[in-house]
């Protein structure tokens, strides 16, 4: 059988996010890897793509009304780009990162291509039956495997599903223009602003370590930020804490889904809605003053105590450990 092709959506392309390298690594286990972008990749990005074995970069050139600033982020426009890239490359599998916007674009592209779709995958592999996609459902309590019966298959993959690795043989990716003329978007983007990312902190959805604060912080995220800084972690929150205005982004079924190596929840009770967004974490640590807190049921390690005491002490101990390790 001829070699299969995996097409990875790379957006943004100026800077390659860790999640993109994970998708490319996963793509290499499925076949040759091409990426599709909506903007020119930077020189650094191209070098990274080469180190990770990408063969061709298909850079969309939007023709017509869809090229207007802001419009290129619309699901219908990204979907048209994905579909055009699939048609050109004859890709067998399309890998798209997790996130609400990318998920919609993947779905609309699958609709246009008549392709099957699985969202939020944790693993993807070829088997005798075809492309088998594994995912966790019901707040991480069940695992399902399904086979996509179409070629191509469209799959969105959650962050941290695989560990990004450079290719054994680096490549020299060619950039090829991909003219796309989507239908004029029916939706007008009146305004679009992207949030400033906290300097020095990884993004919440991609972080390997996440520290989250809830109502139990009483509005003071100082101890949460302190521990996050010591660990180099992203900071998240429960929905209640965000609704109180104490933090900007929350973890959970209707918020951000995280699947880090380590999740630390402080002053968070562990409601099912919250669990839905973090239960796939490899290690779960909780700090809660209530010995009966439901989050303890899904924790590997827990401290019954006041987070205002426990977190700063932990942060100090971790800093001391790191300093000692650096000296040794």
């Amino acid at each position: 059988m001829s070699r299969r092709t995996a097409l990875v959506l790379l957006d943004p392309a100026a800077e390659v996010r860790p999640a993109a390298l994970e998708l490319i690594t996963l793509g290499r286990s499925l076949g040759r890897v091409d990426v599709v972008t909506l903007e020119a990749p930077s020189v650094e990005a191209l070098a990274q793509l080469g180190a990770h074995g990408v063969e061709v970069v298909h850079q969309a050139e939007l023709v017509g009304a869809a090229g207007a600033p802001g419009s290129r982020h619309l699901a219908t426009v990204v979907a048209a780009v994905l579909a055009a890239a699939v048609r050109r490359t004859d890709a067998d599998v399309v890998l798209v990162p997790a996130g609400f916007a990318a998920k919609e674009a993947a779905a609309v592209a699958a609709h246009a291509l008549g392709a099957g779709l699985v969202v939020d995958a944790s693993h993807v592999a070829w088997a005798d039956e075809g492309l088998v996609v594994t995912k966790r459902v019901f707040a991480g309590t069940w695992e399902t495997a399904s086979v996509v019966t179409t070629d191509p298959a469209v799959v969105t993959v959650r962050a941290n599903a695989v560990v990004a690795e450079a290719a054994a043989e680096p490549s020299h990716p060619e950039v090829e223009a991909l003219p796309v003329e989507p239908e004029a978007p029916a939706v007008t983007v009146v305004r679009r602003e992207t949030a400033e990312r906290a300097a020095g902190r990884p993004t919440l959805e991609e972080a390997a370590v996440v520290v989250a604060g809830g109502r139990g912080t009483g509005g003071d995220f100082g101890p949460v930020n302190d521990l996050a800084d010591a660990l180099g972690a992203a900071v998240g929150a429960s929905r209640d804490a965000v609704f109180e205005g104490w933090h900007d982004r929350y973890i959970g079924q209707t918020g951000v889904t995280v699947a880090p190596r380590l999740y630390v929840g402080a002053g968070i009770s562990g409601a099912p809605h919250h669990r839905g967004g973090m239960q796939a974490a490899q290690v779960i640590v909780a700090v809660n003053s209530d010995p009966e807190a439901p989050i303890f049921e899904i924790s590997d390690f827990a401290v019954v105590g006041d987070l205002a005491d426990v977190l700063p002490q932990a942060a100090a101990a971790i800093r001391a450990h790191k300093a000692a390790a650096a000296e040794a």
Partner: peptide, 24 residues
């Protein structure tokens, strides 16, 4: 779950757990 009740050393115990499990 490995449960520790904080009696003044809870934060250190948390840090120990993370260090022990190669998580820092």
């Amino acid at each position: 779950v490995e449960l520790v009740v904080d009696k003044g050393e809870g934060g250190k115990a948390l840090a120990d757990f993370l260090i022990r499990n190669d998580l820092v």
